[in-house]
Design a protein around this nucleic acid. Structure first.
Lengths: 180, 180
DNA sequence: ACAGATGTAAAACGGTCGTTGTACATTTCA
DNA sequence: TGAAATGTACAACGACCGTTTTACATCTGT
């Protein structure tokens, strides 16, 4: 007995590995180990399935991020890449490959990035003791850059990003002290 | 009288705007303003056309980057995004969307990123007076991050990345002075 | 026991896509 | 002039893809 959640869970790694446009319904049906009839009854259709996968992925991703500072943030990203592989941002890939013909996907991607920016802002505040919009954006850029540079530079990119974030944080910290 | 280069030039913006899997040959034929027969005679086929577009894009991109330091580098990226738009890295998108069934594409993407890393390393050396592998990688991550964060944060991401690179450079500079 | 829900396998449908074939028009130049 | 080169428009091809239909099996609960 399969559920909608089961089908979504089995679809995610296939879409991740072979891409949204590179994955046909037959692959997702085979991965779910159900008949096409059952899959369509449970998830409605391709667009709805992809939307569900994005939701599940987002939830899983954010629950993998600890509540802490930027050091813990980049450590968690390194763990994520270790277990999931480095194929760029799943959401930005969804936007490029499927966002054109489905506005629901584009909207989910934007919401995901808003949530990511918010989480990073809290990491920065955790370390700095106060909010810092510029630093938050810089760490977001480092996070995004690490995610994509890891595709071709591997773990070195993640490590460099973490160090860079620490340097930026310390600089902001010093500047705050100088202003006192 | 059209040339292979003309067809490649007219194809690039279409592939960029609608994506590799979202663009059919009919769109590229229409953009080239030739018949399908002529286009195929000139470029051979879809895979060869995309490879040619990647080559042309890479040449155009690197010739838009000035010889200078990291400040000029991020200024040039801002100009590029101003005129080209922010849709993420064209090459990484090619890798995701078409790299699976065409190893020639994957190889071109890797070569492009190697060239980018090399160019950035020279920017760092220009400012610092000596090579610095970690700083080069950090600036690469910032460059990649700015490219992708600009998709959803616009020019703010580019600006933040430029400032971050300057801070990292100055820190490295100070550390070098302390060691004397 | 049997109706209803839930599943399967496999064919079929309509559409799109990359590519090629056919038939015809136009320039080029020996 | 007239043949070769180069172009066009457009139909057709085979393959694939998302989805639905058909026909049949297997559990579940009163």
């Amino acid at each position: 007995m399969v559920s909608r959640a089961d089908i979504i869970a089995s679809s995610e790694p296939v879409l991740d590995k072979y891409g949204f446009s590179g994955t046909g319904m037959d692959s997702l049906i085979k991965a779910a180990e159900v008949s096409s009839r059952t899959l369509y009854k449970h998830v409605g259709g391709r667009a709805s399935l992809i939307a569900g996968v994005l939701d599940a992925r987002g939830e899983r991703f954010f629950s993998s991020l600890p509540n802490g500072g930027v050091t813990e943030l980049f450590a968690a990203l390194a763990d994520w890449v270790d277990t999931e592989g480095a194929r760029g941002c799943f959401f930005l890939r969804a936007l490029s490959e499927a966002g054109h013909d489905d506005p629901a996907i584009a909207q989910r991607v934007m919401a995901h990035k808003d949530e990511l920016a918010e989480h990073i802002a809290q990491c920065v505040e955790h370390d700095l003791g106060k909010p810092d919009r510029l630093l938050g954006l810089q760490v977001l850029v480092l996070f995004e850059g690490a995610t994509h540079a890891a595709v071709y530079r591997g773990k070195d990119a993640l490590e460099a990003a973490g160090v860079a974030a620490a340097v930026l944080l310390q600089t902001a910290c010093r500047e705050a002290a100088d202003l006192k």
